[in-house]
Design a protein around this nucleic acid. Structure first.
Length: 595
RNA sequence: GGGGUGGUAGUUAAGUUGGUUAUAACGCUGCCCUGUCACGGCAGAGGCCGCGGGUUCGAGUCCCGUCCACCCCGCCA
């Protein structure tokens, strides 16, 4: 028997290869045994090729033993299939390979799930991830992800950006998420932190004069997971010197346009910009899904003198807001359906949901004793509705009203199929508040991060510590939103140390604490810092959109479960006491000692 | 930390008001089959009904607890 050397992959061959002697290697996808004749679909990441084993060939005996997922090498001749037997669904369906020789390179146990079954529970897929990753869908997703990073690099490399790596073993970053810590053996009792983002490092690179930097950076945050959140994830991190907001947006607009044209075949056009306040008031959140309308309507002022006390109280109270939306042609919503919507708004914190139905010749509402038919029609009309519509209204503190109505809007958008999935909808969201008040700690915290520059018109307020104006301060921060996902966020950074000092005063971070936590960075600001700014993309979320999936796990080769557990390697796991001793952390109770 | 949904052959699911031997499809095993590509036919094996406790003459089914997976809130600058 002669040597096997792969000549083609399983997606290569077509009619013009008719007659060629080839050698293919791959996995047995399916075997169809006709007694005297056996068909095997051989699979690799390039495709499927039908192998036919004829009774006059010795290889038929080997083919009898083949089972799903066996790895085999076959030699044979490419044969054009007769017209009636062409399989138009297959890339290689014009041909088949008549096997003269077949060698089992590796047998396989019966897989714990069928690779062609798209309904397998995720727990099982994650435990046997290496099998899950054989499925064409996952292979396609990871290929798209590869193309994404590849195109990002291609684009940025032509724009004078340098790709620079920054450390994974680093120092705890300020005011952020919970850190993952790594104990130091050489410095007992001291810890590295895995970076939540390369934020300070990329700013230092600007101070070092690298001008334009990017990195496809792994980031770590020890917080609870979500469908679009993993404890370790990837950012496209980039930073530019001597720029203001417009330059950063312009560069990213071109990057998005390039990526979407190449990878999605879409012309994204000019990405619109809305302010944070506008986003909140029109959509209830700062990452609006603009693939459908159904904008929120504010009726706070209209309700100030209402006889419905719930409304008038909220309308007249400091920080109260009454918002609603019109659900068109939905006046036939059943009571049960509306009750379910109650649960939706409760997610946002609302205590109740008021609805006004304008059916033909009939007005109905749970609050109809406070509003006569004419005024209900008036409210619906002023909200942009008409006969046949239903209006949903929430009255609460502004934040709760926004969050509740945002949840309701998204729910209705999905349920009523209002979302146009044929085209992705981007928007910039800008003018974020600089500060957010933390009522628990009774202090201001940075909404973005403490290196974010304030807009010029508010600089005086900051430098003079005018705390009463803090709620009005707006940052030079911007998010890029696509289909309701925040896919990128960034800001222009503080490059003057007196401004940075004012920021720390505002955040009640003492000089001593600031020095201890990131003194190196503050000192660097004194050595000639260019104005700079940048952005960080959630690369996984972009990949999700490009792969048309709503689970981040589908675009990560080896993801973790909702409990941050790796079901395949069974990690995290206890370690030997000896390892802990060496790291000087035996004062912590070892899990191996746990009862 | 809180809420929701789910956990039944290898897989995906059905399982009524608690009541004989817990079903089906796919997969798996064996036999048959020379043109299939969701191959077909015949036969067969395969179940601590997530785990622990309780109610009951009797629990997959009811109750309590617990674990796991997914989704949401909190959290994620």
């Amino acid at each position: 028997m002669s040597e096997y050397k792969r000549s083609h992959n399983c997606g290569d061959l077509n009619a013009k290869d008719d007659g060629q002697e080839v050698c293919l290697m791959g996995w047995v996808d399916t075997r169809r045994d006709h007694g005297g004749l056996i068909f095997v679909d051989l699979r690799d990441r390039y495709g499927l090729t039908q192998i036919v084993f004829n009774p006059n060939q010795d290889s038929l005996h080997v083919a009898k033993d083949l089972r799903s997922e066996y790895v085999v090498a076959i030699k044979g001749q490419v044969r054009k299939r007769p017209d009636a037997m062409v399989n138009k669904k297959m890339q290689t369906g014009e041909i088949e390979v008549e096997a003269s020789e077949c060698k089992i390179l590796s047998a396989a146990k019966t897989p714990p799930f069928q690779l062609d079954d798209d309904n397998v529970t995720e727990a099982l897929r994650l435990k046997y991830r290496y099998l899950d990753l054989r499925r064409p869908k996952m292979q396609k997703n990871l290929q798209v992800r590869h193309l994404l990073t590849n195109h990002i690099r291609q684009f940025l490399n032509t724009q004078d950006f340098l790709e620079i790596e920054t450390p994974i073993l680093y120092k705890s970053t300020p005011e952020g998420a919970r850190d993952y810590l790594v104990p130091s053996r050489v410095h007992p009792g001291s810890f590295y932190a895995l970076p939540q983002s390369p934020q300070t490092l990329k700013q230092l690179l600007m101070i070092s004069g690298y001008d334009k930097y990017y990195q496809i950076a792994r980031c770590f945050r020890d917080e609870d997971l979500r469908a679009e959140r993993q404890p370790e994830f990837t950012q496209l991190d980039l930073e530019m010197s001597f720029v203001d907001i417009e330059e950063v947006k312009e560069l990213n607009q071109r990057l998005v346009s390039y990526l979407w044209k190449e990878l999605r075949g879409q012309d994204v056009g000019t990405i619109p910009t809305i302010t944070y306040d506008e986003a909140m008031n029109r959509y209830g959140n700062d990452k609006p899904d603009l693939r459908f309308g159904m904008e929120l309507q504010d009726i706070t002022d209209m309700m100030k003198s209402s006889s419905f006390k719930v409304f008038s109280d909220v309308a007249n109270r400091e920080g109260g807001a009454i918002k609603g939306l019109i659900c068109p042609n939905a006046s036939d919503f059943s009571r049960g359906k509306i009750d379910k919507l109650m649960n939706v708004v409760k997610k946002g914190g609302a205590k109740g949901l008021v609805w006004l139905k304008w059916e033909k010749d009939k007005i109905s509402s749970p609050v109809s004793k406070f509003f006569d038919d004419a005024s209900i029609k008036d409210i619906i009309t002023k909200m942009g509705g008409k006969e046949g519509d239903i209006a949903f209204i929430v009255a609460d503190d502004w934040g709760i009203t926004c969050a509740s109505m945002a949840a309701l809007r998204l729910h209705l958008g999905e349920e009523l199929n209002l979302i146009d999935t044929s085209k992705d909808a981007f928007t910039w969201v800008t003018d974020f508040p600089l500060f957010d008040y933390d009522p628990n700690e009774k202090r201001w915290i940075a909404m973005h991060h403490p290196f974010t520059a304030v807009k010029e018109e508010f600089l005086e307020d900051m430098l003079n510590d005018r705390e009463e104006n803090f709620p009005n301060l707006r940052a030079k921060a911007y998010d890029l939103v696509c289909n309701g996902y925040e896919i990128a966020g960034g800001s222009i950074r503080i490059h003057q140390n007196e401004v940075q000092a004012a920021m720390f005063r505002a955040l009640r971070i003492s000089e001593e604490e600031a020095k201890q936590r990131f003194g190196f960075f503050l000192e660097a600001l004194h050595y000639g810092t260019p104005p700079h700014g940048g952005i960080a993309w959630g690369l996984d979320r972009v990949a999700m959109i490009l792969c048309d999936t709503d689970a981040i796990r589908d675009v990560i080769a080896f993801p973790k479960t909702a409990k941050a557990y790796d079901a395949m390697s069974e990690s995290p796991a206890p370690v030997d006491r000896a390892q802990l001793l060496e790291l000087g952390i035996t004062t912590l109770k070892s899990q191996t000692n746990k009862t």
